[in-house]
Design a protein around this nucleic acid. Structure first.
Length: 448
DNA sequence: TCTGGGGTCCTAGGACCC
DNA sequence: TCTGGGGTCCTAGGACCC
C-alpha cells in the first residue's frame, strides 16, 4: 500500500508555500539529562563520571548521563540488567530525589519567565516559550536562545538546549537537533534555517523522533515507506487523517509550520490524580494489599487537598508482575462512586478498601497497586448560567450558539443535550449518566 | 404490532508524552 | 532475586432511548 502524495507537493512547493507562513515562534528549553544534571550541581565531582538516577525501589534507570547513553544503555533499563556494565565502567547510581528536582525545575522557570510571561511549563524539565514578541531586542532568535542558555546555566548550574520553530512540534524537532549535533552548540533555530538545510536534517532524522510518533505509529509509518521526518512532510495531512486520525493530521500541519498546538500558559485543571507503587517484593495477602492501598489513598487525598478539589469517584487497581509471564497473571480494577464528593482521607480510604475487597483474589502474587481519583474541575460560571438557561428556556438556536462558543473557549466542555461542564461534573449531577463528551479538536486551522 | 433511524451513553483500550 | 510513576487524548462498539 502506498499513500498518495498530494498533487504537486514536493520540495519546491513546500519551499514556497508551507513551512514558514506563521508569525508565531516557539522556543523549547529543555534541561539535558535533567535528574543527573541536578545531582551534579550539588556534587561537582560527578561531572564526567558515568551515572544514572534510579526509579523507586531502585528498580530501573530513569535518567542517564551522556557517558552512560554512549554505552548504549536505554531509558528504563533495570538496574540488575546493567550491573555488569556498571562494574566494568564504574557507573554510579543514585536514588531519585524528586523534591530536589522539583525545586530545581522551579528555578529554571523563574529564570525563563524573566524573558517573557508567555511560558508553558510542559514537564519537569521542559518549557515552551512564545518568543516572537521579544525578538527585537536581539540580533536573531539564535542569540536569544544562547542568552537563555547562559542565564539558566549561571543561575542554576543546569545545562539546557534550546530549539526554535514556527510550531511546538518544530521547536521540539529543533531541540532534538540541538541536543544531538554538537555543531549547533545547544541552540537550533529551524525557522530561520535555509529550507534546503532543514530538509537535509529532516531526511536524516527518523520519523519516530517526531513529537507524538511513538513506537507503534513509527512501525505503521514504516510500512507506508515513511521513514524520515522529510518523508512525513511530503504526505498530505488530510490523507493521514483518514488513516491515523486527527492527532496525526495535526502533527503533519505542525511539521509544516502551521501551528495547531497553543501555548498553555495556565495549566488546565487536572482530571485525575494517581498514586501507585510497585512492591519491593511480591505480596499475596489482602492485609498487605489493604495497607498499600490505604497509603496510596492517603497520598492521593493529600494531593487532592493541595489543589482544593474533591473527588466523586475513585478507581482501585491491583496487578501481578507482567514480566513473569510463566506465573499466573491477574489484573483488575474497580470504580467506586461516592455518594458525596469528598476530599476526606478516611472516607476515601473506606471506599478504597471496600473496592479492594471486591477485586482481590487469593492465590496470586501481586506486584503493584494503586488508586486513581477522578476530579471535579472548576466550572466556569458562564457555562453554569447558560446551562441553567437551556434548562428553563429550552435549546434555542441562540443559546446553543452561545454554548458552542463557550465550549470552544473551554476546550473539554460538553455541548450535547444542553448540558455543560466536564464529564465528571455531569456524572456527579446525574448519577453516572453522562452526555456524550466531545472535544473541539476537530476544528483545525486551515493552511494558508 | 412492526419497522427503523438517529442520537446518546458508557466502557475499554490503545496510543502518546515525560 | 531484582523491571517507574505519573498523566492526556482519541476511537470503537454495543446498549439504550426516543
Amino acid at each position: 500500500m502506498v499513500l498518495p502524495v498530494v498533487e504537486g507537493l514536493n520540495k519546491m512547493t513546500l519551499t514556497s508555500a508551507a513551512v514558514t507562513d506563521s508569525n508565531q515562534l516557539f522556543a523549547l528549553v529543555d534541561v539535558n539529562n535533567f535528574y543527573v544534571s541536578c545531582e551534579r550541581v550539588f556534587a561537582p565531582k560527578l561531572e564526567g563520571v558515568p551515572m544514572v538516577v534510579l526509579s523507586n525501589n531502585d528498580g530501573c534507570a530513569v535518567a542517564r548521563s551522556a557517558e552512560v547513553k554512549a554505552l548504549g544503555v536505554k531509558m528504563a533499563t533495570p538496574w540488575f540488567k546493567m550491573r555488569e556494565l556498571a562494574k566494568e565502567h564504574g557507573i554510579v547510581a543514585y536514588s531519585s530525589n524528586y523534591t530536589l528536582y522539583g525545586d530545581m525545575s522551579d528555578r529554571v522557570v523563574k529564570v525563563l519567565r524573566k524573558f517573557t510571561p508567555q511560558l508553558e511549563v510542559y514537564s519537569i524539565d521542559e518549557n515552551f516559550l512564545r518568543i516572537e514578541s521579544i525578538l527585537k531586542a536581539y540580533p536573531d532568535a539564535s542569540t536569544l536562545g544562547k542568552t537563555m542558555r547562559q542565564e539558566v546555566k549561571d543561575a542554576t548550574g543546569l545545562p539546557v538546549c534550546v530549539g526554535i520553530g514556527a510550531s511546538k512540534t518544530l521547536a521540539k524537532l529543533a531541540n532534538h537537533l540541538a541536543k544531538k549535533y554538537p555543531q549547533f552548540d545547544g541552540v537550533c533555530d529551524v525557522a530561520s534555517m535555509p529550507k534546503e538545510e532543514l530538509y537535509q536534517w529532516m531526511s536524516e532524522t527518523p520519523a519516530g523522533e517526531v513529537w507524538g510518533i511513538g513506537r507503534q505509529l513509527a512501525k505503521k509509518l514504516k510500512i507506508l515507506s515513511i521513514n524520515t521526518v522529510f518523508d512525513l512532510l511530503q504526505v498530505s495531512p488530510q490523507t493521514m487523517r483518514q488513516q491515523f486520525g486527527v492527532v496525526m493530521e495535526r502533527l503533519c500541519y505542525e511539521l509544516r509550520g502551521v501551528s495547531c498546538l497553543k501555548l498553555e500558559e495556565v495549566a488546565p485543571a487536572k482530571q485525575q490524580i494517581i498514586a501507585s507503587r510497585s512492591f519491593g517484593k511480591l505480596v499475596t495477602g489482602l492485609e498487605e494489599l489493604a495497607e498499600a492501598v490505604a497509603t496510596h489513598t492517603a497520598r492521593a487525598a493529600e494531593k487532592l487537598r493541595t489543589q482544593n478539589s474533591v473527588t466523586g469517584a475513585l478507581n482501585i487497581f491491583i496487578e501481578t508482575n507482567p514480566h513473569k509471564q510463566h506465573e499466573p497473571q491477574y489484573a483488575q480494577s474497580i470504580t467506586i462512586a461516592l455518594e458525596n464528593p469528598s476530599d476526606n482521607t478516611l472516607t476515601l480510604t473506606d471506599a478504597a478498601i471496600e473496592g479492594l475487597k471486591q477485586i482481590y483474589q487469593s492465590g496470586f502474587r501481586y506486584k503493584k497497586s494503586g488508586v486513581i481519583l477522578n476530579l471535579l474541575s472548576d466550572k466556569p460560571t458562564a457555562q453554569q448560567s447558560l446551562f441553567d438557561d437551556v434548562q428553563t428556556r429550552g435549546k434555542s438556536a441562540d443559546l446553543m450558539k452561545a454554548l458552542d462558543s463557550i465550549n470552544s473557549r473551554f476546550g473539554n466542555a460538553v455541548i450535547r443535550s444542553g448540558a455543560t461542564g466536564t464529564k465528571q461534573e455531569w456524572q456527579m449531577r446525574s448519577g453516572n449518566r453522562s452526555p456524550n463528551y466531545t472535544t473541539r479538536w476537530d476544528e483545525l486551522p486551515v493552511a494558508r
